[in-house]
Amino acid sequence: SDLEELEKFAKTFKQRRIKLGFTQGDVGLAMGKLYGNDFSQTTISRFEALNLSFKNMCKLKPLLEKWLNDAESSP
């Protein structure tokens, strides 16, 4: 289901973010620079904790996926 997908992604996202050495705040700032939407550390934290509305989670997921792919592919 969509919800299970989101839960899986949130977990994976957190693990990969930590492995890359980024804080939640770093992610929020980087996404602001890249996509012009500033995200607070709290928002990233709540995403990882599945603590946002389903609609908000769905809106954030593609942006976070893109950020993660970019972060992992940059030298």
Results as ranks from 00 to 15, higher is better:
71 A>M: 11
47 F>H: 00
52 L>F: 04
50 L>E: 05
45 S>P: 10
61 K>M: 06
37 N>T: 11
72 E>H: 03
54 F>H: 14
5 E>I: 11
61 K>N: 01
33 K>R: 15
68 L>D: 01
37 N>P: 14
59 K>C: 07
18 I>D: 08
58 C>K: 09
67 W>T: 01
9 F>L: 02
51 N>I: 05
5 E>D: 14
12 T>S: 08
53 S>W: 00
71 A>D: 03
70 D>L: 07
29 L>H: 08
29 L>R: 13
42 T>I: 15
37 N>Y: 05
57 M>T: 04
51 N>Q: 12
60 L>P: 00
69 N>A: 10
26 D>G: 06
62 P>M: 04
51 N>H: 15
54 F>C: 08
57 M>P: 01
64 L>Q: 01
52 L>G: 05
33 K>W: 03
5 E>N: 10
18 I>A: 09
74 S>Y: 07
60 L>H: 03
5 E>G: 09
47 F>I: 02
50 L>S: 14
55 K>V: 12
22 F>A: 15
44 I>N: 00
58 C>S: 14
55 K>S: 13
21 G>D: 03
22 F>M: 02
53 S>P: 10
28 G>C: 03
53 S>I: 02
44 I>S: 00
47 F>S: 00
55 K>M: 09
52 L>D: 11
49 A>V: 13
46 R>G: 12
54 F>R: 14
72 E>M: 06
72 E>K: 06
41 Q>T: 09
22 F>E: 02
73 S>A: 11
66 K>R: 11
37 N>A: 13
5 E>A: 14
69 N>H: 15
45 S>N: 12
74 S>L: 06
51 N>S: 14
29 L>I: 13
45 S>F: 04
37 N>M: 11
69 N>Y: 07
16 R>L: 15
59 K>A: 11
46 R>L: 09
50 L>F: 14
41 Q>V: 07
53 S>L: 01
44 I>C: 02
25 G>E: 05
73 S>N: 12
48 E>W: 00
5 E>Y: 03
67 W>S: 01
55 K>L: 12
52 L>K: 01
50 L>W: 07
66 K>G: 10
62 P>C: 04
59 K>E: 15
71 A>R: 11
72 E>D: 10
70 D>H: 06
63 L>I: 15
64 L>G: 01
58 C>I: 13
18 I>N: 06
5 E>H: 14
53 S>K: 07
25 G>D: 02
57 M>K: 02
44 I>D: 00
57 M>S: 11
75 P>K: 06
47 F>E: 00
52 L>H: 05
50 L>M: 11
68 L>R: 01
17 R>S: 04
46 R>D: 13
48 E>Y: 00
62 P>G: 07
38 D>G: 03
63 L>Q: 07
46 R>A: 13
61 K>T: 04
49 A>S: 15
39 F>S: 08
37 N>W: 08
5 E>T: 13
74 S>W: 09
18 I>K: 10
45 S>W: 06
